[in-house]
Design a protein around this nucleic acid. Structure first.
Lengths: 120, 120, 120, 120
DNA sequence: GTGGTCTAGACCACG
DNA sequence: GTGGTCTAGACCACT
């Protein structure tokens, strides 16, 4: 279910965080869904439980999940609001970069080309 | 020659950095050109020399200018390479963000709309 | 805790940067640790707050610390990666210089002698 | 006689400067020797004469060659002193880097290994 | 309380 | 004259 590259320079817990967020973004998981327990995830991926714990802690800090001791970890009820807010931030970020690129003389066509590549 | 808005939330030294970089991007200044001395700029803009110094230090850190104690500050000889490299980096950054936004379900049209706003 | 030589030709803020990096390199400070506040450090060392600020800004630029307005300055979480990466860069730099020296006819013995001096 | 990579990110004139200096360092050319004329070099390498001119100008600025209008360009008579001086500078640079590496905990053996690689 | 920025004014080494 | 550094003291926004 998860693809972890232990040789990667990116910390394992970050890879986990990203992949779980991706599941929510793509709609494969939604508010209220239960995540695998730290122990299960640990043996499935052959990864130290502390690393899983760190990923879950980060996701909770971001408001994406809620961990309830003794019951498990669940996708947060207001996960949609949180992701929406983050989406707005990303859009602003993109706007800033594109404005810089325009200033640097990049023609509109070059940017459109990149967008077409992504949304092929 | 420079337009500084001391009421702006953006720090004065950042405004200076941006405007000098813009002079290079637009070709009004080019490799080897001499910038005003810290003191001259200071009195011209009625700004403290330390603030000018901070802007020049940042530009030197970015490789855009070379400051030579006792002689002055000059547009870097390889400023074009540096700006080109930075442009490539910005494009990659933009690509990453757009890929995230696609993942988050943003339709292509919404992004195109923003680009049209910028390149009106 | 810090030894500053105000008579040295090396700027005070550089001395500070080096000593804080050394604390991390030697393991005396580690990821997440809190640094003294700008003001505290200032009175402790009898140094102007601006000078401390300059050192902290440089450390943040290097990715060694994170300064959060209103909260404080902390050793960066990925400080180990950054220092490791920098170490690799330094080794490459050394390799390049030694290759030049070999080309210039410097005998191996002369270089070994220097290394023995350093690692006495 | 010269290997120029016009696709390289390194400017062509820099490549030329480095290769000519290498000829002197390795003893293949020595004080008083005549370099090819700008025009000859230009057609041999299929490179714009201005680029050759720029390389020669840089070499003259460094004191490595002397260009005599109407006669040609010659390896400088005191080229040995200049290269010796530069060698000393490089050694100091190397010393500084190795001291940093020692501080960063690199063992002597690792450095010796690199040197053995170079001086195989 | 924290970091970030700015002014005012000074000294230094170097060219 | 130049850039680089430092002190002294102030204000801001944010936690």
């Amino acid at each position: 279910m998860f693809q972890i590259d232990i040789m990667s320079r990116k910390p394992v817990y970050e890879q986990l965080v990203e992949q779980i967020e991706r599941l929510v973004l793509t709609g494969l998981m939604t508010a209220g869904d239960k995540l695998p327990s730290v122990r299960n995830m640990s043996v499935d991926l052959s990864i130290n439980p502390n690393t899983i714990q760190k990923a879950y802690a980060e996701l909770e800090r971001r408001g994406v999940i809620n961990s309830v001791p003794g019951r498990g970890s669940f996708i947060s009820m207001n996960v949609k609001d949180i992701l929406l807010e983050r989406k707005q931030g990303k859009i602003q970020e993109m706007r800033g970069i594109i404005e810089e690129l325009k200033m640097a003389g990049i023609p509109k066509e070059e940017i459109l080309e990149i967008i077409n590549e992504i949304y092929d």
